[in-house]
Amino acid sequence: MRTALETFVNNISNPIDKFIYVLDGGQGTYLENSGINVNSQIWCSIPFTQPSFWNENEKSIERKIMEQMFKDFLSSGCSLVMTPTYQLNYTSYLKELKIGESESALKQYDSLLTDIGSFTKKQTESHANVLVIGSIGCYGSMILAEFTGNYGDNAAEIDYYKHYKPQLDNFLNSENIDILGFETVPNIHELRFLLSLDSSVLNKPFFIGLSTNEVQQLRDGTPLEEVAKLINDLKAENKLNENFKLIGCNCCSFVSSSKSIKVLNENLNFYIPLIAYPNSGEIYDTVTKEWHKPKNELLYAGNSNNWKMTVDKYTENNCKVIGGCCRTTPEDIKSIHEAINQK
């Protein structure tokens, strides 16, 4: 009998299979809307650093909110949930806690990741066949460059493995993490690094979400046609990790995301399923630090008709996983789920 993970891999790997998986949505948005301040180095992971969070007998407000967040997303129809660890890389963790790098600090960090993985898995217990994705933020998430891709002139020489290794060491050995998600990758050099990791390093199913702009490029200006060529060439050379299961885009414009997915699909010369989970289409004002809905309703994800049109575009281009990112809510996930099941 297949496990839920084996079924997932089998379903997405079959181009004829029409089953679409639904991913959860904007965890940070949910927590902010519920009164939790996530404005920190480690963003959604901040509640987990409070000792009171782990007291199950006298649950803190933060724990109750986090549990309700998972409950709401799961009841909206998602079958994949993320750990709230996108910005919980080791460097940002040290900065947030204002501690120096040491063996004891690394053990403390590793223990925190283990606890978060266990907590996330526990939230899925009442929902059959739900898988947990270990969320791993790109190098740019550490230096606030995931939306520019500007890693400097030495981007090709950066030690990306140093950034990823502490989180990878935990997630790859965790029974609570089913799939690895490398999110919001904006730079071609970092993408090359991730694609260079073979199964001796990455021995679990994983996907890569790209940070893309309005003209179907990585944020560093690399055309998505070039991204597809890189993947095609590695495939032809038999150098693609067998655990590399999906490629796509996340945390990008609600409207442009379907165009980016289309470019990837049209330029990949072999079948690999795609993944898309865009932002809501709201615009962030960097001066007032507020989000605003676009004046044109067609640019906003917050109604079921817009989601239906976008889900159709995704599925026409081999998307097998669809969800939401910043500013998307359980209602958005419900709209995605309904759009998929109307097909």
Score class of each variant (00 low, 15 high):
residue 305 N to Y: 09
residue 327 R to I: 01
residue 15 P to R: 04
residue 204 K to S: 03
residue 322 I to D: 01
residue 147 F to V: 06
residue 332 D to V: 05
residue 111 S to W: 14
residue 283 I to H: 05
residue 120 T to R: 02
residue 304 S to M: 07
residue 264 L to T: 04
residue 192 R to S: 12
residue 94 L to N: 03
residue 310 T to F: 07
residue 190 E to M: 10
residue 44 C to T: 15
residue 259 K to M: 07
residue 47 P to M: 09
residue 186 P to A: 08
residue 91 T to L: 12
residue 69 M to A: 11
residue 184 T to L: 04
residue 31 L to R: 07
residue 317 N to Y: 05
residue 217 Q to A: 02
residue 276 A to F: 00
residue 306 N to I: 02
residue 271 Y to P: 04
residue 141 S to F: 14
residue 121 K to N: 03
residue 18 K to I: 08
residue 220 D to F: 01
residue 33 N to A: 14
residue 268 L to Y: 03
residue 314 Y to E: 01
residue 246 L to E: 00
residue 92 S to M: 09
residue 30 Y to I: 05
residue 23 L to D: 02
residue 163 H to E: 00
residue 227 V to M: 07
residue 45 S to L: 12
residue 76 S to Q: 08
residue 336 I to R: 03
residue 83 T to F: 08
residue 53 F to N: 11
residue 64 K to P: 13
residue 258 S to P: 05
residue 36 I to W: 05
residue 12 I to S: 02
residue 233 D to H: 08
residue 101 E to F: 03
residue 187 N to L: 06
residue 89 N to G: 08
residue 71 K to T: 14
residue 123 Q to V: 06
residue 240 L to Y: 11
residue 204 K to H: 06
residue 302 G to C: 04
residue 156 A to N: 12
residue 58 E to C: 13
residue 31 L to Q: 09
residue 72 D to M: 06
residue 38 V to R: 11
residue 24 D to K: 11
residue 339 A to H: 07
residue 52 S to D: 14
residue 71 K to S: 13
residue 217 Q to M: 07
residue 100 G to N: 15
residue 135 S to H: 00
residue 299 L to Q: 15
residue 202 L to A: 05
residue 143 I to C: 12
residue 223 P to A: 11
residue 231 I to D: 07
residue 47 P to R: 05
residue 319 C to W: 01
residue 25 G to F: 14
residue 217 Q to W: 01
residue 83 T to M: 06
